[in-house]
Design a protein around this nucleic acid. Structure first.
Lengths: 228, 228
DNA sequence: CGAAACAGGATTGTATACGAAAATGTGCGA
DNA sequence: TCGCACATTTTCGTATACAATCCTGTTTCG
């Protein structure tokens, strides 16, 4: 769905690949990202890999531990709350803006997006489904024509993928598509108030579908897993 | 006012130094940031300098032109509008949160901040004054105890410094301190609604004090300066 | 037998060397 | 004199070499 016009071998390309893998839950939180390993995979030197990892760490998707290496980030419960707090500030009014500036092309884009989501869900590609449902929010920001806010939302959506990987609780798998469908309706009839409200409650639904009780977060992940 | 606990010789240290210089208008928009030059200044290799510059480019403070080098960013009029749009979404409600969670320590911190601003203004250190008045907003986000939003606001404030350098129009030099004083009053009496409203109008005042008419932005800066 | 010290291996941190691209300066020809 | 092509110089992009650090498995001593 997103542009693939990044030339292979660049730091941006490698970063995008890793980010997508994180987003699709192929790289679970805590995964070690060895520099030599990545360099070999992409046929480049560690210089580029390091640039990519540094970029990802600025987006809080990767944690760089000095002399230890790079790891896929493990957002704490607190971080998770903060991310959705930020989304709650940015996204509803961005959905409003998008609705006000909606074009036929934008509408078609979002429609195609939703259909791709459905496909992924039915094909059992849950990773891709999670990725697409996140990108839906980014597309809305893009339609709102706010590049700065879009960049923030893009980061928050990616971090949300990590949060979902860590704190998602089984129940409620269908609310997603419903919420996106509802938003589409609002966009179609051009009801900006409705779009804003729907986005607000959609985000609220998302947080409440997480298990954000303070279970000591995951600094070690092992200590946590074994300390019965 | 900010922590100086970054060990010299690291990319973070160099990035912080450059960012501060940008913020204080010692490095005007468009300045060339040569790698060899910076490496010599800080007594390090280009490796570290490049890491620092890449970090700054992720915050949109530096523009990296392939095979050309790094330059202090020159936000366009459109970018300027977007930055303040984003600030309008984030900061008022963050000021509210800060007000609700205000502590005596936080109050004292902000008070000291304002006094430092006054000092800088009276000492004629306009660069430092601009820097401090920006940091005031970041401190509020910190008091609101929202690290994620704080990071966003920090970036937006830094970009605002560039925008001010480019688009500020003389008049209205005193509104700044007034607005910050008014905010302090709201914090002191714990009036969250007032804090939110004051921040909202403060940001509005800021944008309206800029000259954001489309004067072809500054892609070249030279072409612009000489095309009479 | 257990714990601390030690050595080996693996991985990251930094500097530097070399190649590539762009900007600039020079000289030739029209 | 002007313009174009070529050479030079500067600066960036990438790879690689080496040093520093950490982890782990082993040894040694109490």
């Amino acid at each position: 769905m997103n542009d693939m016009l990044l030339t292979p071998g660049t730091a941006e390309y490698v970063a995008a690949e890793i980010e997508r893998a994180i987003h699709e839950h192929r790289l679970p939180p805590g995964s070690k990202l060895g520099e030599d390993e990545l360099a070999e995979v992409y046929g480049i030197s560690r210089t580029i890999v390091r640039a990519a990892l540094q970029g990802l760490s600025h987006r809080h998707l990767v944690e760089l531990k000095r002399n230890r290496g790079a790891f896929v980030a493990q957002p704490t419960v607190r971080e998770a709350r903060e991310v959705f707090e930020a989304r709650a500030l940015l996204e509803p009014r961005t959905a409003r803006s998008a609705c006000e500036r909606m074009t036929p092309e934008g509408l078609a884009l979002l429609q195609a997006h939703i259909e791709a989501e459905h496909e992924a869900v039915h094909a059992g590609e849950s990773g891709r489904a999670v990725y697409l449902s996140g990108q839906f929010h980014v597309e809305i920001a893009r339609i709102a024509d706010q590049a700065t806010i879009e960049a923030f939302i893009s980061e928050l959506v990616s971090r949300s993928a990590l949060i979902i990987a860590l704190y998602w609780q089984r129940r409620a798998a269908l609310c997603e598509s419903h919420a996106h469908h509802a938003l589409m309706s609002a966009f179609e009839i051009g009801d900006a108030d409705m779009a804003e409200d729907l986005m607000k409650s959609h985000l609220l639904d998302l947080v409440t579908s997480l298990d954000l009780r303070n279970r000591a977060s995951f600094p070690g992940s092992l200590r946590e897993a074994l300390a019965q």
